[in-house]
């Protein structure tokens, strides 16, 4: 029994160690996007025909691409577009989703209407709507962010509706209601502060998903236009050279995977810390 207990605490410690390193890595990632291009100040757009398609070296730690541009500089600048873009989309879909969910919980008719609407909107996958929207509006980074936001919020609204309803069924809400608190007071003063944890967890856990969709649509050429570096677009640009210069494709793809991995692990760590109810 004692041995069991000790392995359990060991597991817990290992868990929190992984969690802390994930959070640390996420901070490093944010720092890279913020000050990376300042520290490594090589111009990501400067062509250099004499130094095309080089493997990593001292002067170009991540090599050069087909126009002789420094890949490290492009990765660092690309981090800003990918991460900032995904964060913007995440902020929009979470806020809209939360607002709609709160609206839905204010009355029975409005709840049924919104519920039906969400169910229907969720029938077509977000990526498909985003694909159609970017195609119709024309490929640009702004339109891509708009398309991802517009197609993404129903999923969050449905999720948050459930979170709010669970919270509304708690005893302290019953108490506040008995004291004569109005519906809006219940929602804003009591429910909202108490669901910050789960909302933060869900938002972080799904940021990685947004990053992947953003990169995929950019890869298809429906996002940012060349020569501006973005990770998905970088993979697309270099795929012609996959056979002869695989490193060109490996570097930006690995950057996407690492970033998503860090974000997902941070989401898991936050969930373990803030919200044991959602532990899977």
């Amino acid at each position: 029994m004692l041995a069991r207990a000790s392995t359990y605490s060991g597991r817990l410690r290992r868990h929190s160690l992984l969690g802390s390193s994930a959070v640390l890595a996420a901070l490093v990632l944010a720092m890279i996007a913020l000050i990376g291009p300042v520290v490594w100040s090589t111009d990501p757009l400067a062509n250099n025909p004499l130094e095309r398609l080089q493997n990593p070296s001292l002067s170009h730690p991540a090599g050069t691409d087909l126009y002789g541009r420094d890949i490290l500089a492009r990765l660092l600048t690309g981090a800003r577009w990918t991460l900032l873009g995904a964060c913007l989309v995440s902020l929009t879909v979470n806020l809209v989703g939360l607002a709609v969910a709160m609206l839905a919980t204010t009355g029975r008719t409005v709840d049924i209407t919104i519920g039906r609407l969400l169910e229907a909107l969720l029938a077509v996958p977000g990526l498909v709507i985003a694909l159609a929207l970017t195609s119709i509006l024309g490929p640009s980074f702004r339109n891509l962010l708009f398309a991802l936001s517009l197609s993404g919020w129903p999923w969050y609204a449905r999720l948050y509706r459930g979170v709010i309803l669970t919270e509304l069924s708690r005893e302290y809400i019953e108490g506040a209601r008995a004291l004569g608190a109005s519906r809006s007071r219940l929602l804003f003063r009591h429910v909202l502060p108490n669901i910050v944890g789960p909302v933060l967890v869900l938002a972080t856990a799904n940021l990685g998903f947004i990053m992947l969709n953003l990169a995929a649509l950019s890869f298809l050429g429906l996002g940012i236009q060349p020569p501006t570096p973005e990770w998905g677009a970088m993979v697309s640009e270099s795929r012609t050279y996959l056979q002869s210069h695989p490193w060109q494709v490996i570097a930006p793809g690995a950057a996407i995977m690492l970033a998503v991995l860090v974000v997902n692990l941070t989401g898991d760590a936050l969930r373990d810390r803030l919200d044991p109810r959602f532990r899977v």
Binding site: G232, V235, L242, N264
Partner: peptide
Amino acid sequence: AVFGAAAPGFWVALMLTYLFGA
């Protein structure tokens, strides 16, 4: 589970074509 969720499909596809195809 963690790696499968983080890998961008289009990139894994390219890597596999390189490895198994080429």
